[in-house]
Amino acid sequence: MALFSVATFNVNSVRSRLPVLERWLSANPVDVLALQETKVVDDDFPLPFFSDRGYHVAFRGQKAYSGVALASRLPFDDVFHGFGDGLEPDDGPRLIGARWGAMTVVNTYVPQGKSLDHPDFEYKKRFLRRLATLFDRETSRGAQNLWVGDLNVAPTESDVTNASTKGDHVCFHASIREAFAAVVDGRFVDVFRKHRPGEGEFSFWDYRVKNALGRNIGWRIDHILASADLADTSVDAFVDREPRSWERPSDHTVVVARFRR
């Protein structure tokens, strides 16, 4: 059975994380890799690292924060950056999409939100609403959709350690989980949860929490979501914890999904 594999990874600086990417990709040559928080202007993106490994790459970045990229074994039919809806900001460094035939992959770095009373939190909700409109537009094209990336939302109590203490957190507050659910409902299936319904599976362990990985104090905020027809072809999804334990890791790790071709 031929498989198609997709991975998402918030690298927290792509140039700093090249040794981690080299080690991981050598053992896991996925078909599509989505990166967030590349933290580099486009002129300085390490394109040869990916092209030397057989990847076509599209990216949009800026200095010091944000930035997204898609690397693919197959050449892109089309690439788009930002929402393209005429509203501001267009947010190209937070949203990149690509099409291959009937499939569209949208890779996003959703704003974290800072605090419940910060303007960024309301913008986070608007960002999600704009995504819903974008996905409806893609569906109207007949596309099979994948939404991947650091979405900065833990959808359920199973997706965070000690959920009872996180009610006022910008990635777990009821209003942001509702906004996230409104995008997912009727459009996507959480491929990870389809295959891994249990608790204690996370993709982010905060640097600031002592031995967060060892104590498994984390969040599942990195996601691979697929339209229902595409989700039906999924055969597995998992978090690879290992890169978080390597030298100079990101505070996130890699999430992978595999689909039948």
Rank of each mutant, 00 (worst) to 15 (best):
V183W: 00
H169L: 00
F188A: 03
F4T: 02
Q112P: 11
S227G: 02
G86T: 02
R23Y: 11
D159A: 01
K63Y: 08
D222A: 05
E199M: 07
P19H: 08
P155T: 07
N211R: 10
K114Q: 10
F4D: 09
D91W: 01
W24M: 13
H223R: 09
Q36L: 06
F121K: 04
A228L: 13
F188G: 04
V239I: 10
K114S: 06
D236R: 14
D240F: 12
K166C: 06
T165H: 08
R193C: 00
V14N: 09
R193S: 04
D31F: 01
M103Q: 12
P197R: 03
S72R: 15
A71G: 12
G186C: 07
P48H: 03
G67E: 15
L87F: 11
R17Q: 13
S227R: 00
K194T: 04
P93D: 15
V235E: 02
G149R: 00
V189P: 00
A228P: 15
V40D: 07
A69W: 12
D117S: 01
V106Y: 13
D185G: 14
R193D: 02
F83K: 12
A174P: 04
W219T: 08
S72P: 15
S227V: 00
A228D: 11
L128D: 05
G86Q: 13
Q144V: 08
F135I: 14
